[in-house]
Design a protein around this nucleic acid. Structure first.
Lengths: 225, 225
DNA sequence: TTACATTTGTGATATATATCACATTAAAAA
DNA sequence: TTTTTAATGTGATATATATCACAAATGTAA
C-alpha cells in the first residue's frame, strides 16, 4: 500500500524538514502496514533492512535476557523504530511488538541513508531523536532500580495516564505478567500492589480498566517509594 | 593547548573520515585537557556548549536518582561524551567523571554541527555511535536486573579484565561503594561476594588489586546467576 | 611521625519480594 | 452454547540482600 508522504498527517518532524521532492522519494519507497495488537514489528535475531516508523499506536520494546523476556520500555507513535539495530547490525538486537492496533511505515534503508546524507536538517533531527532515546534509557535505568515495586507501579500508571493516553481512565494494554517484566517484578506483586491501591482508593480497577482517583497519592508513592 | 588533529594518534573513526582541511578546522577549535582521577568532565545540571571526546582514559557516567547517585556505566576511550546532552538540551542531564588520569578534547558545538552537516561519513559514524550506545543501554538494563549480585559482580570483573584493561591483573578504579551503585547493590554485599570469590579461589585480591585465577568459574557465575 | 577521615570487612537482624500452591475469573476455541 | 486455555488474585513460605553496628585497615593532612 503506497502512500503519499507529502499529505501524511502523521509525518515525523524529521520528514517535515524534507522538501517535496525528497518526500515523494520517501513515498515511493515505503510501505504502510497495519498491525494488530500483539503483532511483532521487529524480531530479535531476525534480519532487517528497513527503518520502521510507528506512525500510529503503541508498542513495547523487549529483549531476551538470560532468564526471561524483558520489556525495556513502552513507546508511542510518532517514533522511529529499529534505528539502533538497522544501523549497527542487520540482525535485530531486540524485538518490538505492537500492544495496540497500530500503523507502521517500512522505509527502505538505502533511501533512508540517502536522505540522511543529502539533508542536514533531516539527519540532525534523527540524531536528536537518538540522543533523546539514550537519555531516556539512562533515566529509566536509574529510576527503576532505586525505587521499589509500589513506586514503579505508580510510575507506570502515571505514564499511561499522562503520557500514553492523556486520560485518567484507560485500559492497560499489557498483562500483569508483562507489567511485571517491565518493572522487574513478578506478576503476583503487580496484582498485590494494584489491589492495595484499590483498597486505598487511589485507583478504581476492573480487570485491565483503570481509573485514577487520587493522582496526588500516586505521585507521592512514585516519588517516595 | 591546541593540538593537531591530523597527527593525533587517538583520532576517532569519525574524525578519520574528515579531509585534512576539516581536521584542521577541528584542530583550531578544540582544546585538549588533562584530567586527574576523580575530576568531573560533565556535571549534571550545569550548562555545556561542547562535545567532549575522551581520547585516553576511563570515565564513569552517573546520574542523580531519587535516592542516590547511580553509576549508569563505565566507558573507556576512545569515545565521545555528552552527545545526548549537548544536542538535546544544553543543560547536562547526567555527569561524567574520570576514574583514571585521562585526556579529553573539548570540541566547540557549532563546529561539530558544521562538520556533521557538511560531511556524510562523519555524521554517519556519529549516528552509528549513538546507535551502539542505545543498544548497550538496552542490554545492560535487561542483564543487570535479571541477575543477582554474584552474577553482576562477576560481570563487572570480566568487563575490567577483558574489555577495559585486557589483563587478568588489574586495579579496580572505583570504590566498593561505587561498585555497589554500578550494579544496584550495597557496598557490603560487594565486599561479601568478593571475599567469597577469594575463598573459592576464583580471584586473588589485595584491596583494589585483583587477579583473576579462574576465569571459567567467573563466566559460569556470570551466566548462571 | 601522629591525628583524623575515609574506606572496607563481617556478623546479626530485618524486610521486601520471589516463589509456590491453588482458587477464581476471563478469554479463546470448538 | 460448552470446553479448553490463559490470565489473575491471594495466602503461606523461603530467601537474597538491605540495613545496622562496629571493628579493622587504609589513605590523607598536619
Amino acid at each position: 500500500m503506497e502512500h503519499s508522504c507529502v499529505a501524511c498527517i502523521y509525518k515525523s518532524k524529521a520528514a517535515k524538514s524534507l522538501n517535496d521532492e525528497d518526500q515523494d522519494l520517501l513515498s515511493c519507497n515505503h510501505l504502510l502496514v497495519n498491525f494488530k495488537k500483539g503483532d511483532p514489528v521487529i524480531r530479535q535475531g531476525h534480519y532487517s533492512s528497513n527503518i520502521m516508523y510507528l506512525r500510529k499506536g503503541l508498542a513495547k520494546i523487549h529483549i531476551q535476557g538470560p532468564y526471561r523476556e524483558q520489556i525495556i520500555k513502552i513507546v508511542k507513535a510518532p517514533r522511529y523504530l529499529g534505528l539502533p539495530t538497522t544501523f549497527g547490525d542487520k540482525i535485530n538486537q531486540y524485538s518490538v511488538t505492537v500492544i495496540e492496533d497500530s500503523e507502521v511505515c517500512f522505509i527502505d534503508m538505502g533511501i533512508f541513508q540517502k536522505l540522511l546524507a543529502s539533508n542536514k536538517e533531516f539527519s540532525n533531527e534523527i540524531i536528536l531523536n537518538l540522543c533523546w532515546y539514550e537519555l531516556d534509557s539512562f533515566r529509566k535505568c536509574a529510576l527503576r532500580t532505586q525505587k521499589q515495586t509500589r513506586g514503579n507501579i505508580a510510575d507506570v500508571l502515571l505514564d499511561f495516564a499522562e503520557y500514553f493516553y492523556q486520560s485518567d481512565t484507560f485500559r492497560i494494554p499489557i498483562s500483569r505478567d508483562e507489567f511485571g517484566t517491565l518493572i522487574d517484578t513478578s506478576r503476583e506483586s503487580v496484582s498485590r500492589v494494584l489491589t492495595e491501591f484499590v483498597n486505598d482508593k487511589i485507583i478504581r480497577m476492573n480487570g485491565k480498566e483503570i481509573e485514577i482517583l487520587n493522582k496526588k497519592s500516586l505521585k507521592q508513592i512514585s516519588e517516595k517509594g
